[in-house]
Amino acid sequence: MPLIAIDGLRKSYGEHEVLKGIDIGVEKGEVIAIIGKSGSGKSTLLRCINGLETINGGSIAVDGAELAADEAHLRALRLKVGMIFQQFNLFPHKTAGQNVMLAQQVVNKTGKAEAEAMARKMLDRVGLGEKFDSYPDQLSGGQQQRVAIARALAMEPMALLCDEITSALDPELVGEVLQVVRGLAAEGMTLLMVTHEMAFARDVCSRVVFMHQGRVHETGRPEEVFANPQTPELQSFLGRSAA
């Protein structure tokens, strides 16, 4: 039984069907890179898994529990699956430490001292122990994204969804964030990441999923997929992104 089981997932916006039957099973500890052209439905897929979008067909189950639209189920799901966004989305009125503490206190009803200890531990883990009292606008983009990772980790999720988490960063800040993700992968965290960092995907991921027009068009181990793409769509996609 995979940790995340996606079966025949369909999602439409009005008449426009964005996901046309997606089947993916993610085993515990797998690191999966989702690649594909703009508009192929990568973000939508992640947003469905986290319950940010309601689905029109098929099913998503995390750790055996199927996704349902009521608030209690969504909450349970979101405690199992954390999400990191392209735009960081830190809470600007709270310090880095408070950003990491908030959901622990509010959602898990963790005591302040314990939440703070966890926040310090997680900020240390992403290399930002000394930024506990900084506000988001006092941090660089790379630092903000690392706080966002710490914030998700503090909820002790079983898997993390990452949607182009380095795309909004200046090139020189991409490395520090990828370094943190690499560490998570090494520690056995289950990761599902949409990325344009092909070198990173090749290096770190156990599987690559190529999406095209709302379907999983090709999938396989990174060394096969990158060295030997089977479909013309993936060939042209890789050719273009290598160029």
Binding site: G51, R78, G82, M83, F85, Q87, A103, V106, V107
Partner: peptide
Amino acid sequence: GQWEASASLGMSYLEQMRH
């Protein structure tokens, strides 16, 4: 994004609003 981030952390509507 503030709604989405707080939702993804498991907060309910009222918790999102309040905090």
